[in-house]
Design a protein around this nucleic acid. Structure first.
Lengths: 148, 148
DNA sequence: TAACATCAGTTTAATCCTAAACTGATAAAA
DNA sequence: TTTTATCAGTTTAGGATTAAACTGATGTTA
């Protein structure tokens, strides 16, 4: 009986090891990529978080702060502080309507958006150029599956 | 001539989009996983960063601060602060030898290590259980390739 | 209309992290 | 032996982020 059943504990042990290795890889890739992104963005004097906000606002036009928070998967408290700095730098403006504040890009913000976003996105994407098109598709499919 | 050459600009455009989608996925998976990890670790009143440090120290025994920093891919300044808290909590101790400080777990640290590490690693790994063994291997191989 | 609930945004205190300047000890070279 | 370089760790200032408490306006209901 025992000989015929698959080595369950062993298999789950190996699976645990695999899962852990994946986690550490992802963690390193993410943090490395973030660091390089930060370096690359220095030419426009903005941070990765600021870039993400600008890209969303630029792409969607008028957004409330809560909507922006949802798109970026961060808290509204974070958005308040992020926007304070972007407003100070003259890149975005806030307009209150009823109890909602709508955010949009200023002229300077649009200029930065047009200049920085395409190049930065190209840079971001190029970090995966060790993979060919087929491999990228595979990777994306696997990543999607993780989030069921 | 034109008809026979592959649509280069188009292809690289699609590749850029794929690369970007991968980046956003990885970013979301990482941040989600980190948040859930934090929630799970609350039962031992430690943070993900503290857990990682304890796991390394527990696994490797005596380590200098610089060695620990290298293993965790963070700065030594960060380690100084991380260890201050772990020392305060009585989980690790530092012993100076020559100009190097060697870190090791206290009894309380070892106890926490034995209790928390296996369970936490299991939890961590289980976040990828939507993938079967073969898919995990594939994913890991692709991730490795990214870092060439 | 007065009391209450809801909801957007703000504030506060905390954690994690970095870069850069600093300290102090060892080692090497003049 | 004095000077200089190197190297481990610390400190400091600042950025990004969160959770939780707070503010103030709008809407609902008794």
């Amino acid at each position: 009986m025992a000989e015929q059943s698959p080595p369950e504990t062993d298999r789950s042990g190996r699976d645990k090891r695999l899962g852990l290795l994946i986690w550490y890889r992802i963690s390193r890739i993410y943090n490395q990529s973030l660091k390089e992104t930060g370096r690359h963005l220095k030419q426009w004097s903005i941070s990765p978080a600021q870039f993400d906000a600008l890209a969303q606002i630029g792409a969607h036009g008028r957004l409330s702060q809560q909507q922006l928070a949802d798109k970026l998967f961060v808290t509204k408290g974070n958005i308040t502080q992020l926007l304070s700095k972007l407003e100070e730098s003259g890149l975005v403006k806030r307009e209150q309507q009823w109890k909602t504040k709508y955010i949009s890009l200023t002229e300077a913000g649009k200029e930065l958006f047009d200049g920085a976003v395409p190049e930065q996105e190209w840079f971001q994407a190029s970090q995966f150029d060790a993979l060919d098109r087929e491999e990228k598709k595979q990777l994306l499919a696997l990543l999607k599956k993780i989030q069921h």
